[in-house]
């Protein structure tokens, strides 16, 4: 059943199944391009998003998918003067078991994207169409790649208002985005033999897990041992077998619980390797 979003005049989809109309629906998921507001205001940023609704037990992937899988990708075709920002990635979940651990989303997720709009070339009363060529990998026990051309047509308005059904999704997605670390907190890391020590100094830290932005730095499947320090926390992160050289920083997000995730960028200090003499 196609969902109509407020005053959006048309929602057209070319799914992999060549079905036209409504959200793209393939094995494992449904995806739709939605807007926070019922129109576009010339010169003001427009918030749109890719709303993925997975079937039970299926998942898609975070920007760093972990050990397997691939993140969704989007290629925009926009009217002149429009410019799309990067996907804003909500904090993921740790998925999988045993020696293969992935980072991604189950249930549903909205990936917001902010679009800059021109102030001069848009006339009130007209309309514009955004096109997104979206590809993804959705997995359960097995994986299915998918692709869809999603479009969204919006009226040009002087004062667009929120579309209630989608505005709620954007607010929820916003609360799942990692926040900047509080200014009083500090993050630093050491590179040691076989592992990184990631120290976060800040109030109220007891349990946390680290999700690296880059693959190939830490072993995703290894348990992250947390040690409480005076005024903070230290995580032991086993190095990846694919780690070629020590990175200058460990960038990622620190997840403290549902809705509590912080962006972390920790400078890495190399500690001397222990002597291997007998």
């Amino acid at each position: 059943m196609p969902i109509r979003w407020g005053l959006i005049s048309t929602v057209m989809v070319l799914a992999t199944a060549s079905a036209w109309g409504g959200p793209a629906e393939t094995e494992g998921l449904k995806v739709q391009l939605i807007s926070d507001t019922d129109g576009v205001q010339p010169g003001r940023p427009l918030l749109v998003g890719l709303h993925f609704e997975m079937q039970k037990h299926w998942h898609i992937y975070w920007r760093n998918p972990g050990d397997s899988g691939e993140p969704p990708r989007v290629r925009w075709k926009l009217p002149a003067g429009f410019q799309a920002g990067d996907i804003q990635w909500p904090a993921p979940e740790r998925l999988g078991s045993g020696s293969v651990i992935d980072y991604g989303y189950q249930g549903s997720v909205l990936l917001p994207v902010e679009i800059q709009t021109p102030s001069t070339t848009l006339a009130a009363g007209g309309s514009i169409t955004l096109s997104a060529e979206v590809s993804w990998l959705v997995c359960k026990d097995t994986c299915v790649p998918g692709k869809a051309d999603l479009t969204l047509t919006l009226s040009v308005r002087r004062a667009p208002g929120p579309v209630p059904a989608s505005h709620r999704l954007f607010q929820e997605a916003g609360s799942r985005l990692p926040k900047p670390m509080p200014p009083a907190w500090r993050a630093e890391a050491t590179s040691e033999s076989g592992f990184f020590g990631l120290t976060i100094l800040g109030a109220g830290l007891a349990k946390a897990s680290f999700f690296p932005l880059e693959a190939g730095q830490i072993d995703h499947a290894a348990p992250q041992t947390a040690t409480t320090l005076p005024g903070g926390l230290r995580l032991t992160l086993r190095k990846s077998d694919q780690l070629a050289r020590t990175p200058g920083r460990l960038d990622g997000i620190l997840k403290l619980g549902p809705g509590r995730a912080y962006a972390v960028s920790a400078p890495v200090r190399a500690l001397p390797e222990p002597s291997t003499n007998p």
Partner: peptide, 15 residues
């Protein structure tokens, strides 16, 4: 390039 991130489906080990 001696290492890179292996990509693909997870190896389907026994549970």
């Amino acid at each position: 390039v001696p290492t890179s991130r292996p990509y693909g489906c997870s190896v389907k080990y026994a549970d």
